[in-house]
């Protein structure tokens, strides 16, 4: 993904490629302003695929791709899009990108495509994508918007990968389909069926949120 960004660099001598301001776009969503744990966005479609690491990784990559390019296009078109139909324009662009991802997965990663089934389509309604378009890409330059999208996508990705890591490890004793506990000779490891069921995702995510918020001292006001 980093290569794609560099290609689109707008030459601007006054500001370095990764100035402090721009670094903030990428770093902030990783922890301080994480889209999932702090902003409470985009939990929808992602958790259902986190039973195993492999589909989760593909999902994270797909979301990153869709976010970066939808931000780029929306930002390029931001002065042309009529305000009254902007939501539907955003949806149309996201939906096209997602369809593209879906077609490519269908052709070149059929196994994962079958596993993810409808959840690729549900990237369209992932609130993070829409949220960043509305909040950032509609009012900022293309390169900045892409950085911002990249940051949010990474913030989202590491959370779902962390959830998937624990769910696959504790639920089926594997990582990327590799039987970890069998290999280290602990073949009687009691796998927890609850971890692979939806319940496991809620609980793991709840705990990750707790740890993260406790670490940074963020308290939600009622």
């Amino acid at each position: 993904m980093a290569e794609t960004i560099e290609k689109k660099v707008v030459k601007k001598p006054s500001e370095p490629l990764l100035s402090k301001r721009r670094k903030k776009f990428v770093i902030d969503p990783l922890s301080d302003d994480n889209p999932i744990t702090i902003q409470v966005l985009g939990i929808c479609s992602a958790l259902a695929v986190t039973t195993q690491l492999k589909p989760t990784l593909v999902m994270a990559l797909s979301v990153t791709f869709v976010m970066i390019f939808s931000s780029l296009f929306i930002s390029l078109l931001r002065n042309l899009i009529p305000t009254r139909v902007r939501i539907i324009v955003q949806l149309a662009i996201i939906a096209s990108l997602v369809s593209l991802v879906n077609e490519v997965l269908h052709a070149y990663a059929f196994d994962v495509y079958k596993q993810l089934s409808v959840f690729v389509g549900l990237i369209i309604t992932n609130c993070i994508v829409m949220g960043r378009l509305e909040a950032f890409a509609m009012g900022n330059k293309p390169y900045d918007s892409m950085l911002d999208a990249f940051g949010s996508a990474m913030g989202y990705s590491w959370i779902i990968i962390a959830v998937a890591f624990f769910r696959e490890l504790l639920g089926s004793g594997k990582l990327f389909g590799f039987a970890v506990f069998d290999t280290i000779g602990w073949s009687t490891f009691p796998t927890n069926g609850l971890m692979v069921s939806p319940v496991g995702a809620f609980i793991i995510l709840g705990l990750i949120i707790w740890v993260q918020r406790a670490k940074m001292g963020y308290v939600e006001q009622h």
């Binding site: 744990t37 409470v40 809620f202 609980i203 995510l205 709840g206 705990l207 949120i209 707790w210 740890v211 993260q212 918020r213 406790a214 001292g217 963020y218 308290v219 939600e220 009622h222």
Partner: peptide
């Protein structure tokens, strides 16, 4: 607990 308030406890 503070860190669990809101989203965390709702998830659990």
């Amino acid at each position: 607990p503070d860190g669990l308030k809101g989203l965390g406890i709702t998830m659990l």
